[in-house]
């Protein structure tokens, strides 16, 4: 049984359906709340996919990607707060530069240790950033966060902002997907599966880990800065470990080994949270049990199981035609 890549148009169909689906939300929605929900899905989806480049692809379980997500958000929030909303768009760019610099420097530190130590160290740095933001009330607003962050000009219109968001998120995912299937992406998967062998091909494991750490952080930062304009506010929770935990959960639920797995995981978790949250105040208990059930039933993740099913059907078909 050989595994042939599907015809090229199937990927194009998938992209078209996905973009079309999200593009139609403002047209079909019955309230602005649904727009808000779709925006959350897009931002979390990007954050989760970027995170999975690190974990699912390269095998580096960071428990501190909230650091970069928060950094992106706070660059936008603080610059708009102190310098005016004209700085909204430049702040996204400056925030990403800051994320690149931070992830490069921290990356040099955290990548030196492997496995669970890497996870713990990233968690520690994430919590450190949370503490600083939390305590530095005069500058960051501490626990209150910053409200009233508005984008300039026509982006003040929520629908316009939504399309702006949609374009940036889809563009970012396209870039990440190209990376995942390039020689660089193959090298990253090899680093996960057999770092010793990679070294013996004459390639540096840590150098590749640092590269993907920066790339993943960069898009986490972008996701954070885009989030600031959706709720028009930022808060310290964006740096908190639960934010890092959320993308881990999304990746597991959607499937680590599929590019779009974490995105589907993000969709599932946000919709579940929304439905269950409206229904009962014990929502976290219900969500916890639901996710536990799903992980037990679908160990490969939602997309992973679907993919597995497709392969099984192809095998059956091939056997029947023999």
């Amino acid at each position: 049984m050989t595994m042939k890549p599907g015809p090229k148009y199937s990927a194009a169909v998938l992209w078209t359906l996905m973009i079309l689906g999200f593009a139609l939300v403002p047209v079909l929605m019955s309230s602005s709340y649904q727009l808000n929900l779709a925006s959350h899905v897009l931002v979390w989806g990007l954050f989760a996919v970027a995170f999975n480049m690190l974990w699912g692809v390269t095998g580096m379980l960071s428990f501190g990607q909230a650091l970069y997500y928060g950094l992106g958000a706070y660059f936008v929030g603080l610059m708009v707060e102190y310098l005016g909303s004209a700085w909204y768009l430049p702040a996204i760019g400056i925030g990403m530069l800051a994320v690149a610099a931070t992830s490069f420097l921290l990356g040099l530190l955290v990548i030196r240790v492997g496995g669970v130590y890497f996870t713990m160290l990233t968690l520690a740095f994430g919590q450190l950033a949370w503490q600083i933001t939390f305590k530095w009330y005069d500058f960051t607003g501490g626990d209150d966060g910053i409200q009233g962050i508005t984008a300039p000009g026509f982006l003040q219109n929520p629908i316009a902002y939504y399309y702006f968001l949609l374009v940036l998120v889809m563009l970012s995912m396209w870039i990440l997907k190209r990376m995942a299937y390039s020689p660089f992406g193959l090298m990253l998967r090899c680093v996960r599966q057999n770092p010793e062998r990679v070294r013996f091909l004459g390639r540096r494991v840590r150098r590749n880990q640092l590269r993907v750490y920066i790339v993943s952080s960069l898009f986490a930062g972008l996701a954070g800065s885009l989030m600031a304009g959706i709720d028009n506010s930022i808060h310290t929770d964006m740096f908190f470990w639960t934010t890092s935990g959320e993308v881990i959960l999304m990746s597991v639920l959607g499937g680590l080994n599929q590019f779009f797995g974490p995105f589907v995981g993000a969709v599932a978790i946000i919709i579940i949270e929304d439905i269950v949250g409206a229904w009962t105040e014990y929502w976290s208990l219900i969500i916890g049990s639901l996710i536990m059930g799903m992980v037990i039933l679908f160990p490969k993740g939602l997309v992973g199981e679907l993919h597995h099913l497709k392969l099984r059907m192809m095998q059956l078909k091939a056997r029947r035609s023999e």
């Binding site: 990376m179 390039s182 020689p183 193959l186 004459g202 390639r203």
Partner: peptide
Amino acid sequence: LDNVKVACLSKLDQTRRFWRPV
């Protein structure tokens, strides 16, 4: 194929290429 190919890409110093598919 990719097992051998990743070695070929290493040899040709192309493992940093991140845009075109393998």
